[in-house]
Nucleic acid binder design. Structure first.
Length: 502
RNA sequence: GGGUCGUUAGCUCAGCUGGUAGAGCAGCGGACUUUUAAUCCGUUGGUCGUGAGUUCGAUCCUCACACGGCCUACCA
């Protein structure tokens, strides 16, 4: 800090910042302007928990001395005494500063503190006339001078763009933003506990892949200089996790980021967090049971209830989740479709055409049914619903059904009209897998940029023997959206991807 | 990518289909020893997103661009 009085960006400066910069200069002259010797003993939230029920008489009798630190968020000066509210990681508490308790000079200095400054204080607990737990301050210290004015104290920050770009301001001023990210953390914690208590091993597999695989999506590309080799940011960890099951890690899970070079929307961020888990000697039916159990447990643990309200609609995780095939789901909401029509390639192709859906020439009946489902039914699945029996042609990594090789032992879970999870019995036949990779390569060559690559090492791993296994992926961001009633994925990602600021 | 709405003081927002801008909070000065979005008096602060165009004159009308919200497409 050799140029402490030089603004980093002069055009950004205004009168308020200049004023505060002058105060900082005075602090530097008076001594260490950024001391790091104050140690707090208490948190606002804990003090409220412990003492909100105590009467003022009890508090005065007990003479409870506390040391607390935080950011000034409110300030009320009344001549010879002042109140201020500070905010720490757990909440807010009011401080009472008066000439009687701190001496006049400390109180006078406090009057020049600004909203946003970070202070440390020591004093005794008491209750004000209106019954608010407060600290009667005897010692007060400015710990960090804040140079920039905070957003307005009552409305907070409302500009969506600024909330995303300057999340720290959102977190300082908006209680709701903090709530969302605390819940997010607890959700991940609860999921981790759920699997760890079931003897799953948490692992981390590569984020940089030589062959992007495990999903149909366009990857980000990068380059390793020393190896002079192209690399892809992973689109899914699936193939690595199944290699680990081959290696004997029979219950594994990973919670980590995936990257997909596709559109951005209220439901899509280029990097998003995914839970994937695999368990040997189980099938997709077991996964559906496990998923229900997990969501029920996570919701109850984190929110204290199995019922959540998402955008005005109540979702109850305690109710058994429905299980419908693709055609059953279509017919449930659109009974006008007959069984015969739904298995008629020409009918489906015509219907989709009139709905304006682009269909691929290689689509079979199963693919067309899925397109019709996506177009007409998906968004209507508000209560948690498993959709089962996905066509093999769109499930290149899933095991074929024993009774019908055209479909796979696979499900997707829909809640509030959107996909939350995707799971299946894993394809562990290396020759079938090799053939399906070949089909993907063919699709890629004929222009499908999202089709999969042929992963020879993965086939080799399967040839050593993947035990019969069930595996599933759950989009954590979308789950957190549900549990926090957030309309946009950007509201549950601390720093969502935005364009470069102009 | 397409459609649509928005961008005015540090923040939250007004601004009459055209005459170069206002309020509240924050700031500064003053009063006030239990306030709590403290109150009261006074006061500073603006390239009206950027760039063109129309006009005697543009925050306002036209066009382009930038960024963002929402809807939509690909997708999880």
């Amino acid at each position: 800090m050799t140029q402490e009085n030089q603004p980093a960006t002069p055009q950004d400066e205004n009168q308020i910042i200049a004023e505060r910069r002058t105060k900082l200069t005075e602090l530097r002259t008076a001594g260490n302007a950024f001391p790091n010797t104050f140690r707090r003993d208490n948190l606002a939230s804990v003090l409220h928990q412990q003492y909100d029920e105590h009467s003022n008489e009890m508090l005065e009798d007990d003479q409870i001395v506390v040391k607390i630190a935080g950011r000034i968020v409110l300030k009320r000066i009344m001549g010879k005494a002042s109140f201020t509210t500070i905010q720490d990681m757990g909440g807010r508490i009011q401080l009472y500063i008066s000439n009687d308790n701190t001496g006049k000079s400390t109180h006078e200095a406090f009057k020049h503190y600004d909203l946003g400054d970070i202070i440390g204080a020591q004093g005794r607990l008491f209750k004000t006339r209106t019954g608010e737990l407060s600290v009667r301050v005897t010692d007060l210290q400015l710990l960090t001078k804040s140079l920039r004015p905070l957003p307005e104290k009552f409305h907070g920050l409302t500009d969506q763009e600024q909330k995303y770009r300057q999340r720290y301001l959102d977190l300082i001023t908006n209680q709701e933003a903090r709530r969302v990210f605390v819940i997010r953390s607890k959700v991940i914690q609860a999921i981790r506990e759920f699997f760890v208590t079931r003897d799953y091993l948490e692992v981390e597999t590569p984020m940089m892949h030589q062959i992007p695989g495990g999903a149909t999506a366009r990857p980000f590309t990068t380059h390793h200089n020393a190896l002079d080799m192209p690399l892809y940011l992973r689109i899914a960890p699936e193939l690595y996790l199944k290699r680990l099951v081959v290696g004997g890690m029979e219950k594994v899970f990973e919670i980590n980021r995936n990257f997909r070079n596709e559109g951005i929307s209220t439901r899509h961020n280029p990097e998003f967090t995914m839970l994937e888990f695999y368990e040997a000697y189980q099938d997709y039916c077991y996964l559906m049971d496990l998923t229900e159990k997990m969501l029920r447990e996570v919701a109850t643990k984190v929110l204290g209830t199995s019922q959540v309200t998402y955008q005005e609609q109540i979702i109850d995780f305690a109710q058994p989740f429905q299980r419908l095939t693709i055609t059953q789901a279509i017919q449930k909401f659109h009974p006008e479709y007959t069984d015969a029509q739904l298995s008629d390639h020409n009918f489906l192709a015509d219907k989709l055409q009139t709905l304006g859906v682009t269909i691929h020439t290689h689509d079979g009946v199963g693919g067309l049914q899925l397109s019709l489902f996506d177009e007409t039914t998906e968004h209507l699945l508000l209560e948690p619903t498993f959709i089962i029996d996905y066509p093999a042609e769109v499930s290149p990594l899933a095991r074929r059904n024993d009774n019908n090789p055209e479909i796979t032992d696979r499900f997707e879970l829909y809640i509030a009209g959107r996909e939350i999870a995707n799971g299946f019995s894993e394809l562990n036949d290396p020759e079938d897998q090799a053939a399906r990779f070949q089909e993907q390569v063919k699709a890629k060559e004929s222009g499908d940029s999202e089709a999969m690559h042929y992963d020879a090492d993965y086939i080799r791993a399967l040839e050593f023997g993947l035990p019969p296994t069930a595996g599933e992926g759950i989009g954590i961001d979308r789950l957190v959206m549900l549990l926090t009633d957030s309309p946009s994925i950007r509201d549950v990602i601390l720093f969502p991807q935005l364009r470069k600021q102009s």
